[in-house]
Write a protein that binds this DNA or RNA. Structure first.
Lengths: 144, 144
DNA sequence: ATCATTTTGAGAGAGTTTATCAATTTCAAT
DNA sequence: ATTGAAATTGATAAACTCTCTCAAAATGAT
């Protein structure tokens, strides 16, 4: 299980080293669990990990997920009242199709859209660092 | 000032009428203030209106802005921990360029991007209801 | 003007995320 | 392997944003 995520583990180590931070049991555990998901909230991860490690604090989950964001492994997305953390380590940037019926999330990438975004930004004198694109609607199953 | 926003006022009246809701002094006041802004949080509007009407409650601002959303005059957008309400009454749908340096927000529309979004949705069996596209970066002034 | 219904204001309450801090763990230097 | 300075953790309090509650006030159809 651990050897599955060597690359991400290495990326975390590198970030820690650069910022005089330490590698802890909790950080390894949370990274491993995080990489098994596509999108997860801190709360959900807390409950999930409580089974194997009942004393892992919620604050630690939040701190660690934010650390992953700093390290470029995760990306936070705010949905209404909750924040979901996306795994962006192993794949490139991606956008989301979200079904408002069943909450299903489909990821997609579209080169052409990305290119047009750059174009719009340039026209307005902006240099884009990141972006978010979310399409909300009904999936084929929920349309009925 | 009031006669500037006759159309929106009429739209609100129509919504109220259809849902057996009442037109109050507060709703008029908040609508008038809301239409003078592009993007505003409930909290900011609360402080802004406190000067002229110290007893206007925060809950009323929230209730009223949500009412405007129902009426199609406003649209809520979640940014990190805060919710901004956009004025969408007088213009069509638009997306945002956001400067992470000075918080400036530039609106834009791009037909081609919208078309490609539809295409992606169709490919995945989705029917889009709404979307949000936000580009984050630095404006020309903040790049230095 | 009357009165059923809706709305308001003020504060309590709910939900999510961050701050605090003593105790513990990490890791570089012995 | 041991030490010790520095970082981290867990538990809880606190902060923050937004909604709920409910008595008092306002609205608008009659």
């Amino acid at each position: 299980m651990a050897n599955k995520h060597v690359k991400e583990m290495e990326a975390l180590r590198e970030h820690l080293g650069k910022h005089q931070l330490k590698l802890t049991r909790q950080r390894e555990l949370i990274l491993s669990a995080f990489l098994r998901q596509e999108h997860i909230t801190a709360e959900a991860m807390y409950h999930q990990l409580a089974k194997s490690d009942p004393h892992l604090g919620l604050a630690t989950i939040y701190r660690t997920l934010n650390l992953f964001c700093d390290a470029g492994l995760a990306q936070a997305r705010h949905f209404g009242s909750q924040t979901k953390y996306d795994n962006v380590s192993h794949k490139g940037h991606h956008d989301h199709l979200i079904c408002t019926g069943c909450e299903k999330i489909v990821e997609f990438e579209n080169e052409e859209i990305e290119r047009l975004q750059e174009e719009v930004a340039t026209q307005n004198g902006f240099t884009i660092k990141t972006h978010r694109l979310e399409l909300y609607g009904l999936c084929s199953r929920c349309r009925h």
